[in-house]
Computed example of a mutant assay.
Amino acid sequence: MPRPSQGIDQALLRSGLALWPQSGCAGLSVRKVAEHAGVNPAMFHYHFGSKGAFLEAVLQQVYEQMFSQLSASAARDGPVLGRLEDALLTLARFVREHHALLARLAIDAAHGETVVQQFLRTNAPRHLTLLLQLLGEAESAGLLIPAPPMQRFVFLMGSVAAPMLMVQAMAALGVAPAAAMGAAQALSDDAIRQRVQWALAALVQRPPASEISTTTPPATPRRRATTRSRTRP
């Protein structure tokens, strides 16, 4: 029989998500989470049983929200490049919203935190597979320059997601001019969409130059006729 939550479990999950970037996996104590959520620590154990189970639940909830949007973008009707663009936008906005958590997860994983490492091993292949499938579909349709699948993936992630992490890190350190211009020029929806479009444009297959020159010859500019006056002898 499911346990009645009355929203307490969700309040604890929200607090865990809010505290994780500052505290890290090791510093996220039961007492700290319960105090932040305004609930009795006993309710933490009632709903989650252990700290490890709670940490898994925090990460899985935020990931599933992103992955459901990613899957919806990939599965909708329409041209594959449009679906690929929407999927990349979804992933980029997730990075923008949760950049602090992602940075902390990288630190936790490097420090050998088992919960984080297991979460990454389980879930990273899911969005990787989905994006590789979209790229493979576009290649099969003759839309992309031939290239190894992982080469395309790391290029797209480096072009779309990495700039946000870099700008936000510089802004957090107060590095000028990132602190003043970063949000407007690199983190807005328009800026993200522009980077996605630039990155996809670099991968799109184009006709060879010889084919372009034979099928679409350059137009010859017309000269304006001039009338010369003749002087009769």
Score class of each variant (00 low, 15 high):
A53H: 03
G7D: 09
A201C: 01
T220I: 15
V62C: 01
T216V: 13
F44C: 03
R3F: 00
P2Q: 07
P207I: 05
K32V: 14
A202V: 09
A219F: 02
H47L: 03
L70I: 08
P148A: 15
P208S: 11
E113C: 12
V62R: 15
Y63S: 07
F48S: 05
L165M: 14
F44T: 04
S213M: 10
I192V: 15
E97M: 02
P21G: 06
I107N: 00
L120N: 01
A169Q: 12
A109V: 08
A37V: 09
Q197F: 02
L28A: 06
A176R: 13
T214F: 02
V39L: 06
Y63N: 09
G136W: 04
G27H: 04
L84Y: 01
W198E: 11
L144Y: 06
R83D: 07
A191D: 06
E211A: 08
R83V: 08
A171M: 03
L128H: 12
I145Y: 02
G112E: 11
L19W: 06
S140Q: 15
E35T: 11
K32E: 12
G16D: 04
H111E: 15
P221M: 06
V116E: 02
A202S: 13
Q10F: 01
Q205L: 11
Q10H: 10
N123M: 00
A87M: 04
Q65P: 00
P148F: 01
Q118K: 10
Q151L: 13
V80L: 06
S213K: 12
Q60C: 07
A124Y: 09
K32C: 03
A26D: 13
K32M: 10
A202P: 07
Q118M: 08
D9R: 14
S29E: 08
A141G: 09
L88T: 08
G38L: 10
W198V: 14
A110W: 02
A106Q: 12
S23V: 01
P4M: 06
Q60V: 10
A141S: 11
